[in-house]
Write a protein that binds this DNA or RNA. Structure first.
Lengths: 317, 317
DNA sequence: GCATTGGATGGGCAAATGCTCATACCCTTG
DNA sequence: CAAGGGTATGAGCATTTGCCCATCCAATGC
């Protein structure tokens, strides 16, 4: 008899209820009776199982129009990899759909027999993708972060893509132990001079595959929303032609990196043009269309995971 | 403009509706509006998506008591692999639960980097497992059938585990081109003398991993229900101590193979005792408890996928 | 010791869902 | 061309589900 962690037992109940509901097809009433709880509690358990990601749902059939869009994207933009998530209703964030499809794509790389070093950016797309991943051991691969994991305010909660990933996949992981944004260029240089940092930077530079979010530079730019740049700085960048952003590095409509106030202080590894190996951009929502076009034009990315509407918009232009 | 296969387009609609419902969390009303169909049709599409296996649901959390049962099974019976599917409601066939868990286990073997030859039996358990598998390419492995795929009446519908598997996984596949049950021992010998048959038999004998169903020998014996033996033959086998069956080969309570009327005519590769490499038995339902015990006792299997109730019954004895 | 706060609980109700049935449609066959 | 069989459709209804809210319980602070 060991002590039962109340948190674990809660998850257990939720998982069991979710399992009975989604796999067993039982009604919540039956589940309630079976587990000896009230109907309401069963309902709460089921919805918690879903909300906490204990239940994963996958679509096991490529919809014709998405297949067509994938083929068209590959041909039209010379991509090596393209995945299109089916449209997911009017009120639903397309990132939800895209995350599930991105997770599938990542799993297809993980399934490869040869050991890979996989580089990851940060951001909502990546975090959502990791949440959708199925946990399984893949000791042969390595995952490395392309971006510093020391947050300005010390909070690491948004930058733990690599940690969650490593936790799920049991892969050796290499977070980049530098500030996302150093105070000064000098501080940044100090970090980069450290041996362990160099090693991670090297690994990141030579990653076999890269997954990263594609940031737009409109008023809703992630860089601005997450507080990396002020409104004024954003406006200035926009005036200078800023169109998109990859792991914090801003580029213009041609996919050429701009020199911004951030550049010298940004901790991480920039994704160089025409990088060898797959560089998969994850980009949901039509507001990212210009950024996606630019990233492709500059040969910064050669793979794309997006939603149906965005794919159509890309192909329409 | 190419012709649209009506079957594909039906699946497309169902997949899309299922995706919107299960991934997008939309109501069927919203989906109906979005797709421009009636609510009833949306409902039918959603339920078809589920019924046809277009939507896969996985549980991403091991329930404590199942984990404990797995550990206990391994320890108690010296198994190298044990998976326990959570209990799935009173009225629900435990095979449903077990199939999903078995698919997960198979996927964990498929994820391994080194090329494997994986042998498969037949039967409902195996067919259900394959239905639950996620499609993905795994060219490095090979799958081979342990049992003949030529049915007595010519119908191959029940023996196409390997074909479906190969279809989903894009693996080279080797069905065993012999009758499940030859008319006479001589006919069987003729088949086995053929070069291509020999090659497949060799592959099957040397498979790195084996997945097979465990058949019980009670009144509900699969061998009898599927028409391989008559009621009288079954009774005779039972009288001689028949307790279980693996790919058609019947064994007693000690897991020692019996000589039955079938033995000399059965097409396939028998699973020998103390075979090297994992031999995973898939067995759902408490009626299989004696057969499972026997198979373990005779060292015919060294891995087990079962449901929670059966695991408990095994451990209780 | 008592008040407060935060979370869990179950009643109740409106919305969503699943199902049955009568009907319409289409494709085949005589 | 008509009949027939099988299938898809939408109306209507019983069941199931999601959610709000009043209430309760326990832990914490005063």
């Amino acid at each position: 008899m060991n002590l039962i962690d109340p948190e674990t037992s809660k998850h257990d109940d939720a998982a069991r209820a979710g399992w009975m509901y989604y796999v067993g097809g039982m009604t919540q009433d039956q589940i309630a009776t079976e587990l000896g709880v009230s109907r309401q509690r069963a309902q709460r358990l089921v919805s918690r199982a879903m909300a906490e990601g204990l239940i994963h749902v996958r679509l096991e059939h490529k919809i014709g129009s998405c297949l067509a869009a994938e083929a068209a994207l590959k041909r039209r933009f010379g991509l090596t990899e393209a995945r299109v998530a089916p449209y997911l209703g009017a009120g639903v964030d397309p990132a939800r759909a895209t995350a599930a499809i991105a997770a599938e794509l990542l799993e297809s790389y993980l399934a490869r027999p040869d050991p890979l070093v996989i580089g990851f950016g940060t951001g909502r797309s990546l975090a959502a993708m990791v949440a959708e991943l199925a946990a399984a051991p893949y000791e042969r691969h390595k995952v490395v972060s392309l971006i510093g994991n020391i947050a300005p305010d010390g909070s690491a909660s948004f930058y733990d893509v690599i940690l969650r990933l490593a936790d799920k996949l049991h892969v050796p992981h290499y977070p980049m132990p530098v500030p996302v944004l150093s105070e000064t260029a000098e501080e940044r240089a100090l970090f980069y001079a450290l041996g362990p940092v160099k090693a991670v930077v090297d690994l990141a530079r030579n990653a076999d595959v890269v997954f990263c979010g594609v940031g737009q530079m409109g008023g809703d730019a992630p860089l601005y929303k997450d507080g990396f740049v002020t409104r004024d700085q954003l406006a200035e960048m926009q005036a200078r032609g800023a169109t998109g952003e990859l792991v914090g590095c801003v580029f213009d409509a041609g996919g050429v990196y701009l020199d911004t106030p951030l550049t010298a202080r940004l901790g991480g590894v920039r994704i160089e043009p025409a990088r060898s190996g797959p560089v998969i951009g994850i980009a949901a929502g039509t507001s990212k269309v210009p950024a996606i076009r630019a990233a492709i034009a500059g040969r910064l990315i050669n793979g794309l995971v997006t939603d149906e509407a965005t794919a159509e918009a890309l192909l329409a232009g």
